Computed example of a mutant assay.
Amino acid sequence: MLDHLITHDDSLRMVPTDRNELTTAVGQLHEELRALPEGSDPARARVLTRWIGIGQMCLGNHEEARATLRQSLDLAAAIGNTRAVVATGLNLGDAHRYAGDVRTAAALYRSALNTARNQHPELVDFALQHTGKHLMERGDLEDAQAHLQEALRLWIAKEEAGLVESTQAALARVGAADRAGPR
């Protein structure tokens, strides 16, 4: 929905490709959300709140990102969409990580990874990659490397070239951080 307006910076965090365009697009999603009729399908509200939250996170609006992604996660749980619970939980984890709340981020990543392993094995690779990046930023390089290597094996098996490349970039950062040693 907003993928074309989001890229990754040198720290492998999501950032806007064009801040003004992303701001406009997020505003349009807000308008669509507000225009949903009372009693409409909550699945659409869930999708909209998820993308609004992702956009806000990329724009650095952490408080709004966390509130909106929490709303999306609650909607996913309420409608019983565990696949969306995993994906949105990872996004909410990112929003907390970007805001510096590593404890909440860790709990969200752990929950998403456990749910993926138990109910949605097709999402384990995403959960591993998000968790691996979190561990890398925390300085837990050994665990980060293990998570990212497992994600890489899964991406290779799925023949997901772009995701293989992004995971290799994360692994390279872990290796560079490990060679640099403790700060």
Score class of each variant (00 low, 15 high):
Asn81Arg: 09
Asp3Leu: 11
His8Gln: 13
Leu148Thr: 15
Leu108Tyr: 08
Ala65Thr: 08
Gly27Lys: 04
Gly39Leu: 09
Glu137Gly: 11
Thr88Arg: 04
Glu32Pro: 01
Ala177Cys: 00
Ala45Ser: 14
Gln28His: 07
Arg13Val: 03
Thr68Arg: 09
Arg44Tyr: 01
Ala144Lys: 05
Leu135Asn: 07
Lys133Cys: 06
Met14Thr: 07
Trp51Arg: 15
Arg173Ser: 07
Glu142Gly: 01
Leu108Arg: 06
Arg183His: 11
Glu137Cys: 08
Gly80Arg: 08
Asp10Met: 00
Asp178Glu: 07
Val47His: 01
Ile52Cys: 02
Leu171Gly: 10
Ile79Tyr: 01
Arg19Asn: 02
Gly55Cys: 08
Asp10Arg: 08
Ile79Asp: 06
Asp125Val: 15
Leu123Cys: 09
His30Asn: 05
Arg138Lys: 12
Ala76Gly: 02
Ala169Phe: 03
Leu2Arg: 12
Pro121Ala: 14
Leu75Thr: 02
Thr49Asn: 13
Val26Thr: 07
Gly181Thr: 11
Tyr98Thr: 05
Leu22Asn: 01
Glu160Thr: 03
Leu12Thr: 02
Leu2Cys: 00
His120Gln: 12
Ala65Gln: 10
Arg34Cys: 01
Asn61Ile: 02
Glu160Lys: 13
Ser40Thr: 12
Leu29Ala: 04
Asn118Lys: 10
Ala105Arg: 03
Ala107His: 06
Gln71Val: 10
Arg66Val: 13
Glu31Leu: 07
Ala84Met: 09
Leu108Phe: 06
Asp143Gln: 15
Leu5Gln: 02
Arg44Val: 13
Ala172Ile: 01
Met57Glu: 11
Arg179Thr: 09
Gly162Glu: 12
Pro121Gln: 14
Met1Asn: 10
Gly80Met: 08
Ile54Glu: 05
Gly175Gln: 11
Leu92Pro: 04
Leu73Lys: 04
Leu92Ala: 08
Ser166His: 09
Asn114Asp: 15
Asn81Trp: 15
Glu142Met: 07
Glu150Asn: 13
Gln28Phe: 00
Glu142His: 15
Ala172His: 10
Leu75Met: 05
Thr82Phe: 07
Leu59Thr: 05
Leu171Trp: 10
Gly53Ala: 10
Leu163His: 08
Val124Pro: 05
Ala106Asn: 06
Met14Glu: 15
Thr23Met: 06
Arg34Val: 03
Arg97Tyr: 06
Thr23Ile: 03
Asp178Ser: 07
Gln145Leu: 12
Gly60Ser: 06
Val124Phe: 06
Ala87Asn: 12
Ala151Asp: 15
Lys133Arg: 14
Gly132Gln: 09
Ser166Phe: 11
His96Asp: 02
Leu12Ile: 04
Met1Thr: 03
Val124Asp: 12
Tyr98Met: 08
Lys133Met: 06
Gly100Ala: 05
Leu33Gln: 04
Leu36Asp: 04
Asp140Val: 10
Glu64His: 05
Ala65Pro: 13
Arg70Phe: 09
Gln28Lys: 07
Leu90Phe: 00
Arg83Tyr: 11
Pro16Phe: 11
Thr68Met: 02
Gln145Ser: 14
Leu141Arg: 09
Ala25Trp: 05
Ala25Gly: 12
Leu5Ser: 01
Ile52Trp: 01
Arg46Val: 03
Leu29Asn: 07
Ala177His: 05
Gly181Val: 01
Tyr109Ile: 08
Ala157Ser: 13
Thr104Ala: 07
Ser111Pro: 00
Ala146Tyr: 03
Ala106Ile: 08
Asp10Gly: 13
